[in-house]
Design a protein around this nucleic acid. Structure first.
Length: 747
DNA sequence: AAGGTGTGGTAGC
DNA sequence: ATCGCTACCACACCTT
């Protein structure tokens, strides 16, 4: 489906709640109760008029500036004839038409790609009972499909760049320093890792079922922090944002929500709804301080388990504690201690599972504690909007609304199969669980090791040419690299934001990305260093073939190697027995940084091994580490005499030594398992095993398509060896070097 | 059948 | 003006 058509379709699904787009980021409370007056007006108009006709079917119309007839009348005409009103340009809903009398120069530009019509178009359409050709009612001359000429676009970008320059050396760091979403994401990652460390220290408790789970969270956290030194404002409608008209509201208090203000809404919009709204600033340092107090108090309880949900929010398993204390009392005490130490209110939900704990928390806000049980929950939750169920966002809620399900109790009306067919297996199953007040998520199984690391930047990206695109891409890749640390990346997914063909060149949000088409690409990055990564990313970005001036954002995500889970799935993988040791006819292609170049080396050098000094294997194994390492490093000069397999299995050795074999192992995960077993089996590697490993890696490397897996395996060895003896680390280095050199001649 | 890739949804304030 | 991030899951579709 064409993107615009899809948006129209989506719009239909969402009915007349044209600005529900903000619902996507709504949180912390029953937004249902504070519906925007505008929605009500539309609904009432539509109901009163019972949709006299469908003239404006599929029309999503934005009214701009002063009009004759008035907005109210036009709105009535449009809505009662099957059309809908678009509250804002930009965002996720797409306006098909703009109605305007006069346009300022800037708007002229901003609206250049819309169908901009005079109000008479609406009136005449209704009078004649059909949709008239809009081009006879143009409000500006150069409308669709003409785009801004290239020079104009260049001019716009140059002007914008004077204020916001995404190529400035400190742009990325200063951007992230002010981004609330970046703050939230990175804090969460930090806390998750801390909680995981903690889990290792906590005693491994038995896990009788049912559990007692606390879900604790500060009430409108950012606002609460902002109000700490402005207590006189606490009864006013307050929000936290950077303050400009198109800045996002990060958090608003309950007073503001009464006016329909929601988190994620733009300030300009919120001010329409609530002119007295007061905007306060962010204070990231203080958020961190409060967060630390919260988590310290939780840890001091000595719970069975803690999971970080957010900077101000945690799931706590307190089952053991509750054998002595009453859960609700425990929660109350926790609440008061936190209030005393931070000065801000937290609420707590108590329940036997995560789902119910989350729902209990919603009921508990503001400043309260609510306990839910399997038996009390259904009644307490009956009227709660499906939007408030964990994992049910704007899109799924819209699909549920199509099924006639808008609140929790309606779920009963739909069969499990319908849910699964309409929403997918996972969501369907989850909803059925919810209806039964159950949750298959187990708090002790959450917080697994991090699987990916990424960066994304979609604000202020304004670039003129390929060079600038490469520069920006390179800068962002460096930022990504700085976050990788000792982690071990396997693949890179590049997410490219390109201005949608029909989106205006000047974005509705100041310096925002506007509506974009997003495409992505995944590549293996095993064996690449920063320079290699940069080259790869720039290459991929170029492959999207986007006019530089239409680039609006870039995301880079590294999937990390799975270092824990052995898998039993076998992927197709050639067997060693059938391997040919000859040079592969198709040489692998890989971009390696110039820094890796070490002079000419050919594959044949490794294949045709030079004469060797003989070393007995047993002797080798008993050599001091230092010498072993030397031999491994110069293994081409040594030949270790391997005893026959018979003598090896003789009971001479006290410890039973099992030679490592990679033969017959078919999956990458399986290979890693063999490596892990090998590394566990000995303080330092046996020479024979080293040879087996080297041969296997050589084989992989030489076979047509497994060279990336060879690199992968060697790097995995390196990754794991960090915790092992120097011998292991050295082996890894030697193998890395070997593989790196094999790659060289191909460049 | 199992794995890879591309896309899309959700959560936090 | 403005700071629209990021990790993770699930799925459709494709290849082998």
């Amino acid at each position: 489906m064409h993107p615009a058509a899809k948006r129209l379709h989506d719009h239909e699904v969402s009915g007349d709640e044209t600005n529900i787009e903000y619902g996507a980021s709504e949180f912390g409370g029953f937004g249902q109760y504070f519906r925007n007056k505008q929605i009500k007006l539309d609904t009432q108009l539509r109901e009163a008029n019972q949709c006299r006709s469908q003239i404006f079917k599929d029309c999503h119309i934005y009214l701009n500036g002063r009009t004759e007839p008035s907005h109210t009348i036009l709105k009535g005409l449009i809505v009662s004839n099957g059309g809908s009103i678009c509250a804002f340009l930009g965002g996720k809903t797409y306006a098909t038409h703009i109605v305007a009398e006069h346009l300022t120069k800037r708007k002229n530009n901003q609206f250049a790609n819309y169908k901009v019509v005079k109000p008479a178009w609406v009136v005449n359409c209704v009078n004649q009972g059909k949709l008239l050709d809009w081009t006879n009612y143009r409000a500006i001359e150069s409308s669709l499909p003409t785009l801004d000429p290239k020079e104009t676009q260049e001019q716009i970008i140059l002007e914008e760049r004077e204020k916001v320059n995404c190529l400035a050396p400190d742009y990325i760091s200063s951007y992230y320093a002010r981004s609330r979403l970046h703050f939230l994401s990175t804090k969460k990652a930090e806390l998750r890792s801390k909680c995981q460390q903690l889990a290792g220290q906590l005693p491994v408790a038995e896990r009788p079922s049912p559990r007692t789970i606390l879900h604790i969270d500060f009430d409108s956290f950012f606002v609460a922090v902002a109000l700490k030194d402005k207590p006189d404002l606490k009864d006013q409608p307050i929000c936290v944002s950077w303050g400009g008209p198109s800045s996002d509201i990060a958090s608003c208090n309950y007073k503001a929500r009464e006016f329909g203000v929601q988190n994620g809404m733009w300030v300009s919009r919120a001010l329409q709804l609530c002119p007295k709204l007061v905007c306060l600033s962010y204070n990231f340092d203080e958020y961190t301080r409060c967060s630390d107090v919260l988590y310290q108090e939780i840890v001091d309880l000595r719970p069975d388990y803690v999971t970080a949900v957010s900077v101000d929010e945690a799931l706590v398993d307190v089952t053991s504690l509750c054998s002595k204390t009453d859960a609700s009392q425990l929660a109350q005490e926790l609440r008061s201690r936190i209030k005393a130490k931070t000065g801000i209110e937290a609420s707590v939900g108590v329940a036997p599972n995560i789902f119910l704990a989350k729902m209990a928390l919603r009921l508990a806000k503001p400043a309260g504690v609510v306990c839910l049980t399997q038996s009390s929950a259904p009644q307490r939750l009956a009227n709660c909007s499906v939007r408030d169920l964990p994992g049910i966002g704007y899109h799924i809620a819209a699909k549920l609304a199509d099924l006639g399900v808008t609140n929790y109790s309606h779920l009963k009306r739909v069969t499990e199969n319908t849910l699964k067919n309409q929403l997918g297996n996972a969501v369907g199953t989850k909803l059925v669980d919810y209806l039964n007040c159950q949750d298959s998520d187990d708090i002790s199984l959450m917080d697994q090791v991090q699987k990916s690391v990424g960066v994304e930047l979609c604000w202020g990206v304004r670039l003129l040419n390929d060079n600038e695109v490469a520069q920006f891409t390179s800068n962002l890749t460096e930022e990504l690299w700085s976050r990788v640390q000792s982690l071990y990346p396997e693949t890179l997914t590049i997410k490219f934001y390109r201005r949608a063909a029909d989106a205006p060149f000047v974005t509705p949000k100041y310096m925002g990305c506007g509506r974009c088409d997003v495409t992505s690409k995944t590549r293996r990055v095993v064996g690449l260093d920063l320079e290699g990564l940069k080259t790869l990313v720039i290459q991929c970005v170029q492959s999207f073939a986007c006019p530089p001036m239409d680039m609006r954002g870039l995301g880079l995500q590294l999937r990390l190697m799975d270092t824990t889970t052995p898998t039993h799935h076998a992927i197709k993988f050639p067997q060693l027995e059938t391997a040919s040791r000859s040079t592969s006819p198709n040489k692998p292609k890989i971009q390696l940084p110039p820094s890796r170049r070490r002079g000419p080396t050919t594959l044949s050098q490794f294949v045709n091994q030079p004469d060797k000094v003989e070393v007995d294997m047993e002797v080798f194994d008993n050599l001091p580490s230092q010498i072993k390492r030397e031999i491994m490093a110069h293994e081409d000069e040594f030949l270790v005499k391997v005893p026959s397999s018979r003598s090896r299995s003789e009971p001479a050795a006290v410890t039973t030594y099992e030679p490592v074999s990679f033969r017959g192992v078919t999956s990458e995960a399986g290979l890693r398992q063999v490596l892990r077993d090998w590394m566990r089996s000995a303080e330092s590697p046996h020479y024979e095993d080293v040879c087996e490993f080297r041969d296997f890696v050589d084989y992989l490397f030489d076979s047509d398509w497994n060279w990336t897996k060879a690199i992968s395996l060697v790097n995995y060895l390196n990754h794991c060896s960090l915790n092992l003896s120097q011998d292991w680390q050295y082996l890894a280095k030697v193998m890395q070097e070997r593989v790196a050199q094999k790659i060289l001649p191909i460049n």
